[in-house]
Design a protein around this nucleic acid. Structure first.
Lengths: 219, 219
DNA sequence: ACAATAGTGTCTGTGAGACAGTATTGT
DNA sequence: ACAATACTGTCTCACAGACACTATTGT
């Protein structure tokens, strides 16, 4: 029956150069000053949790996210040296084109490949690991991969999301068969991806589907 | 940056008479006095979240749970009329034999079939619905069903868990093939389920497996 | 003997994985 | 012409679903 401080922390992912990357900000104040951490901060009075997560994201970065979901809540009494601070963690996704990571609030913000993360503040290493596992799992049985690509995308692009997040993916013919046989995963938009070498790929946009039955199996 | 009150609420499920049931307690104090609610209460100073959930469960019921996992956190600023109260919800499972629902703290406690729940206090209807969906989903791709049965169980018993939770299940021959071809789901214990009419069923115990690949598909 | 339930064997269709072959572009 | 990439077609194997059949108990 003790009052606690409530924070939100956001694990924001994107795919850049065929690698799955996580956004980190360098802390400007104690505790853990100078160390890298997940973006986040205190929840305001009368502010919903998801609203707080969106607000913190737009304060610390200038990125439009395509997906935001609650991950879980971390409440170990010793996780913050300042006292009892409980954190509700969120997972967010942004399309690969999101370059400008630095926002107004944070001194410094950077994309880090998830397999080369630096030492993190608080229990953020644990949160980041849980977040990575969550998105790896959800690529199997949902259409979440489409949240990693832009408004319109090609099937090879979509497959590269799986490659980046899993380090492995079905071969392109079988992947294409799977995606196209799932109504509402990807809908043809009629255009074509001109300019590059090789045969141009057809462009698609996200459909209304959210679940994959049966799932795409991880290598 | 406002202090909030933190609670845990537990959705404790079991299977009784081939129905999936949820434990509810009747509130003895305002707000929502006299209304049914999920068991739970305030998190103590320096108390971990999962510890708090276990403590509240043993205070309000006398049931040994076989599974406990965090569901999600509910933080709508208006969810509790007393002010800012954020609740971390847990899902718990108990074997079907757990009869004595009433504990020390609560005035009254009862098992309710999940498809016949009464009006619930606060946003507990939403929490309960999310919890039901969580266990339905996890039966598909994990060995969670084994947490609904006792230390030793028969395969028809295990199948009845699916029947109760989903309202549907694979037929027994195919179910048996699936379970036995998953190493570590159910391990034969050598005994037999004597006494009842019909051929006695062999007894098994839970193995170390947690995931099902590929999943058991819901009807 | 019969009903009831547990357990085995078998057929079939779907779909994933592998991969050969075709199409369409830039150089 | 050739390399490179997108896309199509086909073969095979694993496995889920359906269901006929056998086994073992109580009445």
């Amino acid at each position: 029956m003790s009052p606690v401080e409530l924070t939100v922390d956001i694990a924001l992912f994107t795919v850049r150069d065929d690698r799955c990357c996580l956004l980190l900000v360098k802390r400007g104040i104690a505790p853990h000053r100078g160390r890298w951490a997940l973006p986040g901060g205190f929840v305001l009075e009368r502010e919903g949790l998801e609203v707080a997560a969106c607000r913190e994201l737009s304060e610390e970065t200038a990125i439009e996210v395509t997906h935001l979901e609650q991950l879980r809540t971390y409440g170990d009494p010793k996780r913050d040296p300042r006292g009892r601070v409980v954190s509700v963690a969120y997972v967010a996704l942004a399309p690969g084109l999101a370059e400008p990571a630095g926002g107004s609030d944070a001194a410094e913000a950077r994309w880090w490949p998830v397999d080369e993360l630096p030492r993190l503040a608080f229990d953020h290493a644990r949160i980041a690991a849980d977040a990575v596992e969550r998105i790896r799992a959800k690529l199997e049985y949902t259409t979440l991969a489409a949240a990693f690509v832009g408004e319109s995308f090609t099937l090879p692009e979509l497959r590269n999301v799986y490659l980046a997040v899993w380090g492995d993916a079905p071969d392109l013919p079988n992947f294409r068969r799977k995606v196209l046989s799932t109504p509402g995963f990807a809908e043809p938009v009629g255009e074509v991806d001109a300019g590059a070498v090789g045969r141009p790929a057809a462009r698609y946009r996200r459909g209304p589907a959210t679940d994959l039955h049966p799932p795409i199996r991880r290598g």
